[in-house]
Computed example of a mutant assay.
Amino acid sequence: MTDVAYETVLPDQPHVSTPPAAPNTPFDSAVFDAARAKTIKASRDAGNIHLDQLPWYVETMRGREIFNVHDPKVHGVIRTVSNNGSIYVDWANAYSAEKELASPIQDGNKTVFRSSLGPHDFKDYALVQPATRPQ
C-alpha cells in the first residue's frame, strides 16, 4: 500500500483530499532522560554550579542570575524561596517568560514575568558565573 491521501469524490461536490496521518510514535522517556542527563553532566563538567548543588535558603539564592542548561537563552533572576522548596524566578525577557510559562505579576511600579521551579527542576538550571578578569 502506498502513502496516498484518502480521497473522496462526490459527483456534485468539489474534490476533497486529506493528508496521510502522521506515524504515531510513542514518547520514549528513557531516551529523553538520557539526553537530559547527558546535557546536565556536560554542564557540570564545564564548571557550572546547578541549583540542586546549593542549599535552598533565601540567603543563598535570592538575587542570583540563572540560566537553563538545555536552552541557554532562557535567563532569570531568583526572586525568593518558598517554605515548600520551590523557588520563584523573574524571567529576564519575553523569550524566557514564554518558555517558562511565566505569568505577569505587578511588582511595585513594574510588571515582571514570574514562575516557580520545583526541586526536581533544580538540576536543569545553573548560576550565571561572573566573567573572570584577566590578572
Rank of each mutant, 00 (worst) to 15 (best):
A21H: 12
S103N: 12
Y57K: 06
N48H: 15
R44K: 13
P19R: 12
N83P: 01
N83W: 03
Q53C: 13
Q129P: 01
Y88E: 12
I40V: 15
P19G: 09
P104G: 00
E98Y: 13
M1F: 08
P14R: 06
A21L: 09
I87M: 02
I78V: 15
A94M: 07
D3C: 02
H120A: 11
A22C: 03
D121P: 00
I49C: 09
A97F: 05
Y125V: 06
V9K: 10
I78T: 07
A21I: 07
P14Q: 04
A102V: 03
D71I: 07
R62G: 00
Y57N: 07
P134M: 06
F67I: 03
A102F: 06
I40R: 12
R133V: 11
E59R: 12
S96F: 03
Y125P: 05
I87S: 00
D45P: 01
L10N: 11
Q106C: 04
F32L: 08
N93H: 04
W56V: 02
S86H: 05
F122H: 03
V128H: 02
L117Q: 00
M61H: 09
D33H: 10
V74D: 09
A5T: 12
N93C: 04
N48R: 09
Y57V: 00
I49T: 15
A21R: 13
M61V: 05
G76I: 00
D45W: 04
I78N: 06
E7L: 13
S116G: 08
H75M: 12
I78W: 09
N48L: 13
H70M: 14
P11M: 05
V58P: 03
R133N: 05
E59I: 05
F122P: 00
P104A: 02
A34T: 11
G118D: 10
H75V: 13
A97T: 02
D121C: 05
D3S: 06
D45Y: 03
S116D: 08
R133L: 12
Y57M: 01
Q129I: 08
Y57Q: 04
E7G: 08
S29T: 14
D124H: 10
D52L: 02
N109Q: 11
A102Y: 07
E65W: 11
D107R: 12
F113W: 14
D28E: 14
G85Q: 08
F113L: 04
E65H: 13
E98H: 14
P11Y: 08
E98S: 12
W56F: 07
T18L: 14
A34P: 04
G118S: 13
N109R: 12
P11N: 04
W56N: 09
A94I: 10
H75T: 14
D12A: 11
V74W: 02
L51I: 01
K38E: 14
L127T: 05
Y6M: 02
